[in-house]
Design a protein around this nucleic acid. Structure first.
Lengths: 151, 151
DNA sequence: ATAGAACGGTTACATCCGCAACGAATTTCA
DNA sequence: TGAAATTCGTTGCGGATGTAACCGTTCTAT
């Protein structure tokens, strides 16, 4: 009566698979050149983007667990790509920013990212890109409030 | 000169985020009702779809690491949802299939999956779905051969 | 026929990750 | 004011995961 479920046509599965393949493909680049892990790359890119930001805000912005953020911050600091400053107004808060070296690396990694992305985009074409982006936003809107276990 | 990279507009990041949110949202359903983990669900669904399949083939089909598959197979077997038969022609190979109970559970989980998916699809609309699927296929085609570290 | 390579699958080990508990700082509210 | 609740960030711990090594089996090539 019920037809067989085909996993490769099941949307959550397709999404997970596409994301995993693309993510791994790109991660291979920065891992090979800089030895960065995925959480480190994400945290680093977020700090680079905002200039100054807190660990909590990074987690909220990038859907990463706070312990993951904490550990990535630690190793980026050890690498001297970022530094932290305790906020004067609220001394629980650590304001994170790039060091001078971190700034240089961020430029390099940014252009690497853009190069990679433009190859991806040209592979799927401009209108498909628009549709893709739009559909992903709709998916996130739909699923975002049901799940709330992460921050 | 180079504009700042915005992570939330970066395609691999968007994909990863959308996939993670959707996947977690759906995983909450089968975890809560059956206590299944994500790898277990994937392996189980793959066996259910193919009827009989080997662990290696599951890994290739679903982009999962073979140790992950191996462990999921073990726990599904312990649960008595699947069984294994050593292939007569090649005794390295274990042919995996659902047990009677596994078949029942697969029906339940399949319909759960379809219900969930149809909610997702109606949230983003039918043409957006087509575009999404098409774009993901193109992405996978592009990235699939570069990365080969898993199987 | 047989040595060596290749393959299916499992396991030991080190690492990664999330949960829960925590310390320190701040806010809330009586 | 001061006790309880909340927040930021870290850490201990158990569980999940990937790497590499491994066992047994089969294939390849001489």
């Amino acid at each position: 009566m019920t037809s067989t479920l085909k996993l490769e046509e099941f949307l959550p599965y397709r999404l997970a698979r596409a994301a995993e393949i693309v993510s791994r493909d790109f991660a291979a680049l920065y891992r090979e050149r800089y030895g960065l892990t995925r959480p480190e790359w994400r945290v680093f890119a977020t700090i680079g983007q905002f200039g100054t930001i807190t660990a909590t805000a990074i987690g909220a912005h990038s859907s990463m667990h706070k312990t993951k953020v904490s550990r990535a911050v630690f190793s980026l600091e050890k690498r001297r790509w970022i530094s932290r400053t305790t906020d004067d107004a609220d001394r629980r808060v650590e304001r994170l920013q790039l060091t001078r070296e971190g700034g240089l690396r961020f430029q390099e990694l940014s252009s690497m990212a853009r190069t990679y992305e433009s190859k991806l985009l040209s592979a799927i074409g401009p209108e498909a890109t628009d549709h893709l982006v739009e559909a992903m936003a709709a998916l996130e809107r739909y699923a975002a409030d049901s799940s709330s276990s992460e921050r």
